[in-house]
Design a protein around this nucleic acid. Structure first.
Lengths: 219, 219, 219, 219
DNA sequence: GATGAATGAGTCTTCATTCAT
DNA sequence: GATGAATGAAGACTCATTCAT
């Protein structure tokens, strides 16, 4: 081995385990988003990540495991960011506004990631038998917590079933995201904050106890 | 030919064309729902339909075509049924209630079908390049029409963007359906009408012009 | 059954067994020529013959059998015609000329048939294990007979091995036919008689005992 | 790494790329010759080559591509060898003798290869639509060149159409080869050189301008 | 650790053949 | 006898995964 090769090798070694893992997940996000889980070939992901096919299996047990790991790790970051934002707000109504805007901004900022998290998630839950995505559950739980908090403060109507409405609200947000993702952003008002606020106000109108007229977010 | 043979013959001929096609689609619904489109083997569908593998290809060009045909044909029936119900109602608010209840009752009555229509639909739009599900668009359009009608009657708020809210409402309904489908009905209030009404009232509260307090459906 | 149907039926019955068999073989010639034996589907042949798929199996044991029957029956006619022509000639050299011209005229007149007899024959001999085309052997034998007759009359050189030269002569003719068949007749002198005569003269020059300069055919 | 391991490694690496490709083509020649293109299963070829089924597809796009590659690559070698021989000869008549003997010796030495090149070739030209075998055309062209050269030297008769006679000569040689291939060599004089010379003399007698009695090859 | 050539299980699809009418 | 819908065996090809280097 020549000195040059050694140097080269040491440079390569500087690509730490964590970095290479990240590179693979980044590549997987792109490829899964473009082709779907089943349409994506492991070798394409390897190509996109700049590693050999076999290398993927040094970091992930299988293609399934890659998808699951992708879910959990990316959701972890998202949830942490969102948690941090929500922790600085007291008013549950305002928290709800921020939750919605946060989600839509995420879709605008990282469409491929959100496409994978949104579309493939549903598929996966079925084909990967024992996998029930924890990260997603926690993301939903944050929404449920806002609802319950608002109900305990007597700001939100108490007769609403939190489990059901948590889903319904998420569904509304998610479906908007989906259309955005599938058709491109041109056909909708381009500013996620605007759309988010509109949806938030709509939902709050149904949610708030009557006397309080809700106030739009000032961004 | 004896009378018995004639009967036999007429019975066997009844398993002809349309009926056999229906048997295959019925089987496909079950198998796609259980395994997902990619996880489903054509031979499994053939088994479930009680026909030979090759027979599937007498009725459908390919596995893809089977999925697409399934979509369009089943949506056709659903849309016709729904249309008929909505045509008998004048009040847009009441139409909205019925739309929601109709959908949830469908999910309760035919979970496998709705699972395929709901989950596989999204996947398919991407992997089957040129396919953009018309039936689904028409189903959504019915919802959009209700919204616009309500806005023109000054019953629904005019400031809401119909395209966005059509999606948001559908998303809310769909997500509820999804949870029902994936987790089973036990964990939610079991009566679709009740859940449907709750969601309808929630949405109407956001949707209706303020002076009109909405009235629950009497089923 | 109405009178019309009866008439119809009687008309259909007028299509005799032999005629229907002929129709199938005619169709098979066309389809085999266009697609090759393996590329041809039984259902295509049935279509071309105007019969149902199953009907083919009332006349032939299998697709293989259809090809073989086609060989033997068409060769039978060809050989009979050729035999008749040759019987009216005494001079072996002239017989040879006629043999060659006969073959090339056949190729020009019935290219599909000759294509099947020529090209598929070779394939078949191998894939249909136990089949060794008798008709073809007899066709070749006619050529061998001319050679031997010429040698016995001291017109053709005796040192030539009849078995070998029978093949060589046939090969020369056949290859010309082949190019004609594959590329179309435009690129060669279009008159089979002319080409046939040229080839015949060429061959006779090698074949005839030296003192006799051969004389071209006057057509 | 021990010396043994190195050797092992170098040995294994010798089974790399080109050699494995060659192994597959060798196997394909055998199997295609025995079963024909359509009768040959890819898995049989893989078995014969000592590789897995999938490995074939690392070297060839498809079964069709394997056949075509086989044609072109083997013809390339043959043409180069033949060219080299012909380049050392001046006399067109002698070139023709060598061409014929070369071909027959090839058939005797590598019957399977020649069977595939000879028989499958014809089939292929039709079933692989866009493929027109270049290697074969060049092989024929060599024969055409000899003819034209002889005509320009006033050794061969000028009235003969080179395109036609090129085909006719090839057909004669090819047909002899074919019988050899199909029936085995026992039924013909076993020495290719002898048969080749006989045919060559026969053809030259037709070809040469009259005054020159041709002289047999002394091998 | 990284590589990527090799593996071979898995599946859609075709089509010759059958047989109930 | 004729039909043609149904059959199901067979095979080319893909691609996740492995493992020798």
């Amino acid at each position: 081995m020549t000195v040059d090769e050694l140097k080269q090798s040491s440079v390569n070694r500087r690509i730490s385990r964590a970095d290479r893992r990240k590179a693979i997940i980044d590549a997987a996000v792109i490829v899964f988003a473009r082709k779907g889980f089943f349409g994506a070939k492991v070798s394409e992901i390897a190509d996109a990540a700049g590693v050999a096919d076999g290398t993927i299996y040094l970091y992930f047990r299988s293609k399934d495991d890659l998808l699951i790991s992708l879910f959990e790790e990316r959701m972890e970051v998202i949830i942490t960011d969102l948690q941090e934002i929500l922790d600085q707000i007291d008013d549950p109504a305002e928290k709800l506004r921020r939750y919605i805007v946060f989600h839509l901004e995420l879709v605008a900022a990282k469409p491929e990631l959100m496409q994978v998290l949104t579309i493939e998630l549903r598929q996966s839950a079925r084909f990967i038998k024992e996998y029930s995505p924890k990260g997603f559950a926690r993301y939903l739980a944050l929404l449920g917590a806002i609802l319950e908090e608002g109900q305990q403060c007597d700001i939100f109507r108490k007769e609403l079933h939190p489990g059901v409405f948590r889903r319904a609200l998420f569904g509304a947000i998610d479906e908007i995201s989906l259309e955005w993702i599938l058709k491109g952003r041109e056909q909708l008002p381009p500013e996620p904050k605007v759309v988010g606020s509109e949806i938030a106000e709509f939902i709050l109108r149904g949610l708030l106890v009557d006397q309080t007229p809700s106030r739009p977010v000032n961004s």
